[in-house]
Design a protein around this nucleic acid. Structure first.
Lengths: 219, 219
DNA sequence: AAGTTCCGAAACTGCTTAGTTCCGTATATA
DNA sequence: TATATACGGAACTAAGCAGTTTCGGAACTT
């Protein structure tokens, strides 16, 4: 995550305005850039455990073994730090360019159900849960959360569906955005509303009994 | 809501321990029982607008035109007040005993898509959004929220599906809990995660393209 | 009428936390 | 070596808020 995050920052992809542009050459001790990633990771951990309002700057600083001053030297406020932390989750995702390609829609979806991606998605969902009540009132945060958590997952599903259409497995007139949102919806609801775990069996059930039928592939 | 709430309190169904049992005959000015409902309604409004952490006791008192002391005379803490307010949402629901019965599964679901129930569900969802981050850490609140918001909706869907099975419209081996959770999941995700409105057209799309196919009723 | 309890309003207390400042130390430039 | 800036840590400031108390007045019982 550290390396990914750093690369993204240097490439300027994580945020329109990187939180700490590498400064012009000047005298004095330089900013320790590795602290950024530690702090952002700590913020995500605390966010997932406590939610936005339960999270305090002291908790984040303590978990990152940093001083509060170090945090405020890099981000102007708690909200900005969180927006940045959420935006950086984006980079931990699988690359869209090397998605599995098994030849069938079902195979592609199943290939995504590895322990690591499931754990990763679960962490993102916990972070999202801690932000939901703010999202309705903070457009910047909403934007960051959607770009980091919602959009990548939907995009993967969209690509799988489009490929299935292209190879003739699926009818071309299915509602791609709608079908793409089925499994994220089911997973989110089961986690946030029902408080039940999402495991591989559940994912396969959703796939076979809901997603594939909606795509026109009755079993 | 006032009358329903009062009835529920007297019947003891809203909570295991009603917040303010009607007291034994005694001297002095009696508790004005109508204040309870006003305060709970105000709490729900503020909750929907601000979320749990954004909601302050002063806001609730002001909106209910009550004094803070009146609130604390009836509930021991902010959390207890919210749990009670959420529990009382349960009573605003359609009675399970006079659900529409149109003779087809699709007809039954469509019959539920009236403006009033949609608005009611939307309000409940906004309240839920303000509680999500707490639900993971407060079992009492989670229980109240599920009983008031999640369970009634799922129960309606379950009954529609069971009736469809009973009349032979549906195969008996469908996964009722799973299919019941489809539309709540899609609605929750669209509202909380995507921030898009849920209107009648969307509900019908979900019904025709996802729920009915999953129930084995391809169009 | 006397005594009791409720009401809304407002002042008050105590704690938490976002954000700031300062310190001794570490790491860079010139 | 002199200067400048970052670091972690801790003390500090200011504001917001949960919960309490007090007050004048209203509503009830006896």
């Amino acid at each position: 995550m550290t390396q990914l995050d750093l690369d993204a920052r240097l490439a300027g992809t994580a945020n329109a305005v990187p939180p700490n542009a590498v400064p012009a050459n000047r005298v004095g001790r330089p900013l320790d850039l590795t602290r950024d990633a530690d702090i952002l990771d700590a913020a995500l951990d605390v966010l997932a455990e406590e939610g936005f309002d339960g999270m305090t700057i002291d908790m984040v600083a303590a978990r990152a073994k940093a001083g509060k001053a170090t945090l405020y030297r890099r981000w102007p406020s708690k909200t900005e730090l969180v927006i940045d932390a959420v935006a950086c989750m984006k980079n931990s995702d699988l690359n869209l360019n090397d998605l599995p390609d098994t030849g069938t829609l079902r195979g592609d979806f199943i290939a995504m159900m590895k322990p690591a991606p499931i754990r990763d998605a679960s962490q993102k969902l916990r972070v999202m849960a801690g932000l939901v009540s703010l999202i309705a009132r903070n457009p910047d945060l909403a934007e960051a959360a959607r770009a980091a958590v919602i959009a990548p997952r939907a995009e993967i599903n969209r690509r799988f569906l489009q490929r299935a259409i292209d190879r003739g497995e699926l009818s071309a007139d299915i509602d791609i955005p709608l079908v793409s949102s089925i499994s994220p919806s089911m997973i989110t609801y089961r986690t946030m509303m029902l408080g039940k775990p999402v495991d591989r069996d559940y994912l396969i059930t959703v796939l076979d009994k809901i997603v594939l039928p909606a795509a026109g592939l009755g079993q």
